[in-house]
């Protein structure tokens, strides 16, 4: 029994991370009908943004010791900032020039950006994993017979907080409403006086901020950062977004948790070595039987 509870907690932790990343895919898809395949690299670059910021402060141990929460917050904000700046550049240089090109072109451009960033970081780090500074307090609490580490609780809480903030932003603010309007009908949005280009940038920025935060937290959790760290979480979060219905915000959240839990339970039911396979089997099944996902709208096939 404890084991199942443990697996559930694992699944929720991982699922929250997937969900937060998945939101970036779904938001960008919503406004551009494009999968930003470099989104996983925003996650990775965010982690490095946090890493190098902490690295710079490494000798200031007094700060780390006396104010761990401030250090953690600093790392997360640095990660978010790194990803946001990159996302703005990415949109401006790699995607916007292809706005009116056939739909395959920005997709290929995105794959190019992804490869570029990963290889830049491989060079920069000499292909070595960087040990992420131990800023998060060790320790855990007992819930019944189950041991839950602080960082896990933090991760679960933070992902819920970020999703809540994003949801409020999208649903309750004028800018969020404009993002939804652009997602539905770009021309009509422009006729309302909405600056479509700016709104698209803001969409990238929102997704990138979440990815950057997730990257830093994930690196704290796994205690390292590496150039290739964005690939699997990125593609799994993409799977989560598709599961939930790409373009749907609640769908991405649902898909993230669904995938996290499926993976976690599968380690017990099938075997830990098949963990990654589960995600992709799910992806294939959804694409065959319900390509619009659980929450997505059935869409007419586009040319």
């Amino acid at each position: 029994m404890e084991q199942w509870i443990q697996l559930t907690i694992d699944g929720i932790t991982l699922g929250g991370v997937y969900a937060v990343i998945a939101l970036g895919y779904t938001l960008v898809y919503g406004v551009l009908r494009m999968i930003n395949f470099a989104h996983g690299e925003l996650f990775m670059m965010g982690a490095f943004g946090g890493f190098y910021t902490l690295d710079a402060f490494e000798n200031h141990t007094t700060m780390n010791d006396s104010l761990p929460s401030l250090t953690i917050a600093l790392a997360i904000f640095a990660g978010m900032g790194t990803s946001v700046i990159l996302a703005i550049l990415m949109e401006r240089l790699a995607y916007r020039p292809l706005r009116h090109a056939p739909r395959l072109a920005p997709l290929i451009s995105a794959i190019g950006v992804s490869i570029l960033l990963r290889n830049l970081m491989l060079r920069w780090t000499n292909a070595r994993r960087q040990v992420f500074p131990q800023v998060f307090p060790r320790g855990s609490i007992e819930i019944g017979d189950v041991n839950v580490t602080y960082i896990r609780i933090f991760l679960v809480a933070l992902s819920i907080l970020f999703m809540l903030l994003l949801y409020i932003f999208i649903q309750r603010t004028k800018t969020g409403t404009a993002i939804r309007a652009v997602a539905e009908d770009r021309d009509t949005a422009a006729l309302m006086g909405i600056d479509v280009d700016r709104t698209i940038v803001l969409t990238f920025v929102s997704g990138a901020a979440l990815a950057g935060a997730a990257g830093v937290c994930y690196a704290m959790y796994t205690t390292n950062a590496a150039a290739g760290m964005g690939f699997l979480p990125g593609i799994k979060a993409f799977t989560a977004a598709v599961l939930g219905g790409i373009g749907s915000v609640p769908g991405a959240m649902f898909g993230g948790y669904f995938l996290g839990l499926s993976e976690s339970y599968s380690t017990k039911l099938i075997g830990a070595q098949y963990k990654d396979v589960v995600a992709f089997v799910l992806l294939v099944l959804v694409l065959i039987f319900r390509p619009w996902g659980f929450f997505g709208k059935r869409e007419d096939r586009r040319a």
Binding site: K174, T177, A178, T188, I194
Partner: peptide, 22 residues
């Protein structure tokens, strides 16, 4: 616009508010 082009997934109020976006 032709065909009205209402934002179907925005509420009526949000549609009106978008009209006043600027």
């Amino acid at each position: 616009p032709e065909g009205r082009a209402i934002f179907s997934r925005l509420t009526v109020r949000e549609n009106l508010e978008m009209g006043a976006f600027q």
